[in-house]
Design a protein around this nucleic acid. Structure first.
Lengths: 203, 203
DNA sequence: CCATCATGAGACTTAGTTGTTGCAAAATAG
DNA sequence: CTATTTTGCAACAACTAAGTCTCATGATGG
């Protein structure tokens, strides 16, 4: 589990989706959506299984994504976009950094599949994970601000707060998948556990 | 991430290791140890890589474990044993259920590789994960007891407390691996985050 | 020293995934 | 309806990993 990423995003993904339209756009989305949903639960699923899940032939899949890695990265971009949009919408109108963190955690829980796909194993995307570190800078800022506000205890370092945020959100998303936590309560439960867990002693 | 397992264990693993001795026992251990350590970081590592890591030829590996699955399960048993021993030793002399939970969390952090291997993806072990559910009954008992003692808030259900326990321990273990959290502090940080996170409001 | 055990090396088969190609059928737009 | 786009199907080669087998070498114990 690596650091979080892309809090408020404006990913320039138009080049990848803008040039397509109508049928092709829908087909592409179906494949990418299936890839995220399937690979978040079983990373070893083959391209054939992804194609089947997207109700598309393997040939068609290869027309859109020449090799496996291109689909892996497209799915990553899409997951980042979904997460970024959810996070961006969530932090709107937050009065404090602590509220922002809570809203971000709710967003993480809401788009669980994307989060699981993104962070179950960063090594999937080949690189050193440098992007993640860059993108998480914003999140670290929010954490530092929340600490300055006195809302949380960052004595263990902001990285631990971020790890806890991600970890608890991830656990809640999985609990939803496993049916041990109703989706309607997951957000509240996760936020409570997180805010108290990293809160200050006098909280 | 599925429920936790094997808190205090007496796994009957003698049949698997007892009949071997000397050289064979050492070779077997080297293979299993390497498998846990390697697969906890890269589940897609091939048997050849495991063999190389254990400084053994692939032929030898296949002599001990005819097929991949047998090694996967042997590694799982060993990881459970390691975790169970650490947990069993940790809970000795605990005065309360809350202390037991804290001790268990420290044990989880200590044997991080085993925990990561066991719980990164339960689907690795094929089955429905029924064993986990059986084994986690003891842990659930401790959680319920801690709730009765008033030490924690189990209003979200014991499963969530267990998920949080595991999740935070897992995050701490990974933070150690990533170097963002010194091993010497990881236990304290994890315990604090957990106990406050699931604690009662008046805690 | 000798018999046995454990290992390493290599060749081999099998199976599954990936990536490519050609062609026909279906859907779509005009 | 017709032309174009999009798709499905099937066959193919390339590659990797898994699993099996044989033979030679090295270590171990009596």
């Amino acid at each position: 589990m690596v650091a979080f990423a892309i809090v408020t995003s404006g990913i320039g993904q138009a080049a990848a989706t803008g040039s397509l339209s109508g049928v092709r756009e829908r087909t592409r989305r179906a494949i990418v959506d299936t890839a995220v949903a399937l690979w978040s639960r079983d990373w070893n699923a083959s391209l054939g299984e992804v194609a089947t899940g997207a109700q598309v032939s393997r040939s068609t899949l290869h027309r859109y994504f020449p090799d496996r890695q291109s689909l892996v990265l497209a799915a990553r971009d899409h997951a980042l976009l979904v997460l970024g949009e959810a996070a961006g919408a969530a932090v709107q109108g937050c009065a404090s950094a602590a509220e922002e963190l809570a809203a971000l955690l709710r967003a993480i829980v809401d788009v669980g599949d994307a989060v699981i796909y993104l962070y179950a194993d960063p090594a999937r995307f080949g690189g050193s994970g440098a992007d993640d570190q860059d993108d998480s800078a914003e999140l670290r800022e929010v954490v530092v601000r929340a600490a300055e506000e006195g809302a949380i205890d960052a004595s263990a370092g902001p990285d631990w707060v971020i790890a806890a945020l991600y970890s608890i959100g991830y656990a809640a998303a999985e609990a939803i998948n496993h049916g041990t936590l109703p989706r309607s309560r997951a957000g509240d439960v996760a936020v409570r556990t997180f805010l108290r867990g990293v809160g200050r002693d006098d909280g």
